[in-house]
Design a protein around this nucleic acid. Structure first.
Lengths: 196, 196
DNA sequence: CCTACCGATCGGTAGG
DNA sequence: CCTACCGATCGGTAGG
C-alpha cells in the first residue's frame, strides 16, 4: 500500500499544484480561493488539505522549484568554455524557453513570489539577487574582454530579463506568434543591443 | 461653501487614491483591504466612502488616467517631424520617465488592471492593444525606410516596453542607481538593438 | 474524500 | 467623520 499510495498522492499533489498555478496566473494569488482551486479539480475545498498543508505551500513549491532550475542552468553556463556574449545568449535563450514551455510556474516565480510568507520571502529575494549578480558578472567580463559594448552591467541584466519576463503579457493575451519567431527576434534584438 | 468643499473633497480624494496606489503596489490589489487604506490615511474604513464609490473605483481612476497620458504623448510623436528611430526613442524615453516619476500609477496601470471590473476591463485591453499597434506601425515604417533593422515589429514593441515596465522590480528592491544612468543605459541598449 | 463548521476578515451600508 | 453592523467569503479544522 505504501508505495502505490505515495505515488498516487504525488500525482494528485502535482495536479493540484498545476491547477493552482494556472489560477494564480489568471486571477492573482490573493484573488484565488481554495474553493476556486477545489472547483477546478472537482472536489470540495477541505479535501485539498489531504495533499497540501496550506495555500502558501502551493506558491512556495512552485517558486523555489523554478528558481532552482534557473540556478542549475546558470552553473552550467558558468563552467562552459563559451565566450561571454555566447554565455549571455545561452541565458537569454534559456529564459525565453522557460517562459514559453514552463509558462505557468515561470510566471509565478517572477510575479507572485511577493506573497510568500515571511521567512521564505527573504530567502527567495536573496536567491534572486545572487542570480542576477552572477549574470551581471558575466556581462562585466564581456565588457572587459571587448566582446560586449560598454554598458552598466546591472542595467543590461535588468533590461534583458525584464523583456523576457514580459512574455507573459504576450502569452496571456493569446497572441498567435510561433515560439521560434518570438525567440529568434528577441534574441536578435537583445544580443544586437549588447554587441560591440 | 460649495467651491471650497469641492476642492477639499478633490484633494482628499487624491490623497486616498495616492495612498491606495502605494498599497496596491506593495501588497497587490486583492491583498489590500479598505481597512489598510483607511489606516494609512488615519480614518476608519467607512469614512472612505464619502470620497470614493468603491475599491474598484480607485483602480479604475488610476489605470485610465495613466493610459490617457501615454496616448497623448503618442499622438504628439505621431504628428512630429522626427525620423522613425527618433520617434521610437522618444517613446522609450517617455515610458522610462513615467516609470520613474509616476511610478505608482504606471505600475498599477501595467500590472493590476487585470482586477478592473467586467466592462472596463475590455475597454482597457482594447486601448492597450491599440496603443501597441500604433507603436508597432512606427517600427514597421522605420524598417521600410531602412532606419531600423529588420525585426518583427510586434516583438520589438513588446521587448522594449516589457523591459521598461520591469523597472518596477528595480524600484521596488530599492536599487540606488540614479535615474539618468538608468535611462541612458537602457535607451542605448534598446536603440542599439534596433539600429541598422 | 465528505459535511459541518470555526473565527477572521472582507467590501460596503445605515444612521447619525 | 464615526459606531455599529450586514451578508459573503476567506483559509483552515474536526470528525468521520
Amino acid at each position: 500500500m505504501g508505495r502505490i499510495a505515495a505515488s498516487q498522492n504525488g500525482s494528485k499533489k502535482e495536479a493540484i499544484t498545476s491547477k493552482a498555478a494556472a489560477l494564480f496566473i489568471r486571477k492573482g494569488f490573493s484573488s484565488t480561493s481554495m474553493r476556486d482551486i477545489a472547483d477546478a479539480i472537482g472536489v470540495e475545498a477541505p479535501s485539498l488539505y489531504n495533499y497540501i498543508r496550506s495555500k502558501n505551500d502551493l506558491l512556495e513549491e512552485v517558486c523555489f522549484q523554478v528558481a532552482d532550475r534557473y540556478l542549475q542552468h546558470l552553473k552550467l553556463v558558468e563552467s562552459s568554455r563559451a565566450g561571454h556574449l555566447g554565455r549571455i545568449e545561452s541565458i537569454i535563450r534559456f529564459h525565453i524557453t522557460m517562459m514559453i514551455q514552463e509558462f505557468d510556474s515561470s510566471y509565478l516565480a517572477e510575479h507572485e513570489w511577493i506573497h510568500l510568507p515571511a521567512p521564505l520571502l527573504a530567502d527567495f529575494k536573496a536567491q534572486r539577487k545572487n542570480y542576477r549578480q552572477r549574470v551581471a558578472a558575466i556581462v562585466r567580463k564581456g565588457i572587459d574582454r571587448k566582446e560586449i559594448r560598454r554598458i552598466h552591467p546591472d542595467v543590461a541584466v535588468h533590461t534583458m530579463l525584464a523583456a523576457i519576463q514580459g512574455i507573459e503579457g504576450w502569452h496571456r493575451s493569446g497572441r498567435k506568434l510561433d515560439p521560434a519567431t518570438l525567440e529568434d527576434n528577441m534574441v536578435q534584438f537583445l544580443i544586437n543591443g549588447l554587441k560591440k
